[in-house]
């Protein structure tokens, strides 16, 4: 058992690195750099949002109030909880508690899937209410508000869609880590993949923490 673990550790060190610390540092730094590019990626959309929100504050307010607040709030809670279980999974990985890692990751993944399910429900609702700008008979077609409301819903779909896509990737990563953990790939000396998967998961959560108020809450202070 001991020798097997040792064997796995040496396998885990790729040939271009000299030490495990160097490899871990490189992987972690790589993920941080990647997250910076992700920030810039979402940043372009946030810029577009800011511009149009400040140009058409009233229409954005009205359109915002058509979103389903309780559902959005529920999803926010689900994601916050998933971040907690993800953090617990990383901690367990650090301590070498294999079963705990697997269970926490499964719960994290379930939270992620719950989020996506709720999101899908919400989107279906939007389709039924003809709130989708790209389709025929958009609910405001022919009204003066049409163009600007379309901008709001376009941004809503583009940004939450992009976020959901990141969630899907995140669920895939967590699934992969669960399988690798089950196959004894990680140990307290080498749990970097769990660690960087966690970084990614938290990042995707944080993006939602910005999206939620920007889309759901902007008009709540005006007499509603």
């Amino acid at each position: 058992m001991d020798s097997e673990a040792h064997h796995l550790e040496t396998l885990a060190l790729r040939e271009q690195f000299d030490t495990e610390d160097q490899q871990k540092d490189a992987s972690t730094l790589g993920m941080w750099v990647f997250l910076i590019t992700e920030m810039m990626f979402f940043g372009g959309m946030f810029l577009a949002y800011t511009l149009y929100r400040s140009t058409y504050p009233q229409v954005f307010g009205v359109a915002s109030s058509s979103l389903n607040l309780p559902i959005g709030a529920t999803n926010t809670c689900v994601l916050l909880l998933s971040s907690f279980t993800m953090a617990m999974a990383v901690r367990s990985g650090q301590l070498g508690k294999k079963r705990a890692v697997i269970w926490f990751l499964i719960i994290t993944m379930l939270f992620g899937l719950t989020f996506l399910g709720i999101k899908a429900f919400e989107w279906t609702e939007k389709f039924q209410e003809h709130h989708v700008p790209a389709l025929a008979n958009f609910h405001l077609d022919g009204t003066p508000l049409q163009g600007q409301a379309k901008l709001f819903f376009s941004l809503y779909f583009a940004m939450t869609g992009l976020h959901a896509l990141h969630m899907v990737v995140g669920v895939g990563i967590v699934l992969f880590i669960i399988m690798e953990t089950a196959r004894n790939k990680y140990s307290p000396k080498y749990y970097t993949p769990i660690d960087i998967a966690g970084l990614y998961w938290h990042f995707v959560d944080v993006v939602w923490i910005f999206l939620f108020p920007l889309f759901y809450l902007i008009d709540r202070h005006i007499g509603r």
């Binding site: 058409y56 009233q58 229409v59 003066p144 508000l145 163009g147 600007q148």
Partner: peptide, 17 residues
Amino acid sequence: LNPPAKIVAGYQPLMPT
């Protein structure tokens, strides 16, 4: 072309585009 963008105080957004 886009009447609701700026509504004059005291008026309703009645004007069509």
